[in-house]
Design a binder for these strands. Structure first.
Length: 310
DNA sequence: AAGTCGGGGGC
DNA sequence: GCCCCAGACTT
């Protein structure tokens, strides 16, 4: 959960997740849908799928436990070198370094490491953090290094006057702290418009499971179309029985894409045949909240629905 | 080596 | 608005 996600955001999800899946075995035996639902709103949903797979692999191959071995850990889906190092050092107090975003920043400043190319930059950072790694007190050392990065050696306005290693920090010595680390190259965001169909009937909304190809793969959401024509011509929902009553617009930003989501709302007060299939169904908005989906959009949609009802 | 994947906080 | 965050995986 902590991969590319700040601690404050994770805490509630973590507690809920541990309540729901208290052991590795219980996670391994869970349905994928339930695991994803517990992840709903946290983002990077492949992390949930990988965690689930890892639990299943460890359940079968490692006797319901994580292996205490760097290479074996790194072969598990979703566990790279940093996460493997975190497991070994924090759980077992073994001398394996971590290179997360915080430690990267500390290392970059401490030894004035910079490079044009990302791969060479990361290699230098790993080498540096390996050389500094002590053979004892590994748990406390790694935790302290991350805390140093998150609380003292912050990205902007670092608190160098309170830093315990300021005397040996090359960036500090040369008064160049602000120059490190170099800002990352930006991947430009591509604008994309989608047309979304919101069907409301007797307090329920229609949702479907997305395919594996596009964004939000295999999550439940309202039907999305590339063009308004495709939305209009989707006879799946017998649009002639519905009354169009509202359009609204949602701007949603992903890491690599700016989405302009145009929501087309249709209402129907008569009873309809609500078929539930594997990948399509009707659901009350309250139930919708418990499904795997991009929740940032659910709040907005719920607000519009609430306003319409009153 | 570059692209992909969410959502949110800081400034 | 831009950058980054307790990164890893795919192409």
């Amino acid at each position: 959960m902590l991969q590319q996600t700040q601690v404050i955001k994770v805490i509630d999800y973590f507690n809920n997740f541990i309540d729901r899946f208290p052991t590795l075995k219980s996670l391994a035996e869970a349905e994928s849908e339930q695991v994803l639902a517990c992840w709903s709103g946290l983002g990077y949903y492949n992390r949930a799928r990988n965690l689930h797979k890892t639990a299943q692999i460890c359940s079968i191959e490692h006797g319901d436990q994580l292996p205490v071995d760097l290479n074996q850990l790194m072969q598990l889906p979703g566990i790279g070198r940093t996460t493997a190092g975190a497991i070994l050092s924090l759980a077992s107090d073994l001398p394996y370094p971590i290179l997360d975003g915080n430690v990267k920043r500390v290392m970059s400043r401490f030894n004035k490491i910079s490079d044009e190319k990302t791969s060479a930059y990361n290699a230098k950072l790993w080498k540096q953090v390996e050389e500094l790694m002590p053979k004892s007190h590994c748990r406390k050392y790694n935790q302290a290094l991350m805390d140093l990065g998150s609380m003292i050696c912050t990205r902007s306005k670092p608190h160098c006057h309170r830093c315990p290693i300021m005397k040996n920090c090359k960036a500090r010595i040369s008064d160049q702290v602000a120059l490190f680390p170099q800002s990352n190259k930006k991947t430009r965001q591509i604008n994309k418009t989608y047309h979304i169909l919101l069907l409301v009937s007797e307090g329920q909304i229609y949702i479907e499971k997305r395919n594996s190809q596009s964004i939000w793969p295999q999550l439940w959401f309202l039907p999305m179309f590339d063009t308004e024509q495709k939305l209009q011509s989707s006879n799946l929902f017998e649009l002639e029985h519905y009354t169009h009553y509202l359009n609204f617009n949602i701007k949603h930003i992903l890491t690599h894409r700016k989405l302009d989501l145009q929501v087309h709302c249709y209402k129907n007060t008569t009873t309809i045949d609500r078929k539930i299939t594997k990948n399509k169904k009707w659901t009350a908005i309250s139930q919708y909240k418990k499904l795997p989906h991009p929740t940032a959009l659910v709040k907005i949609i719920q607000n519009y629905l609430a306003n319409e009802d009153t």
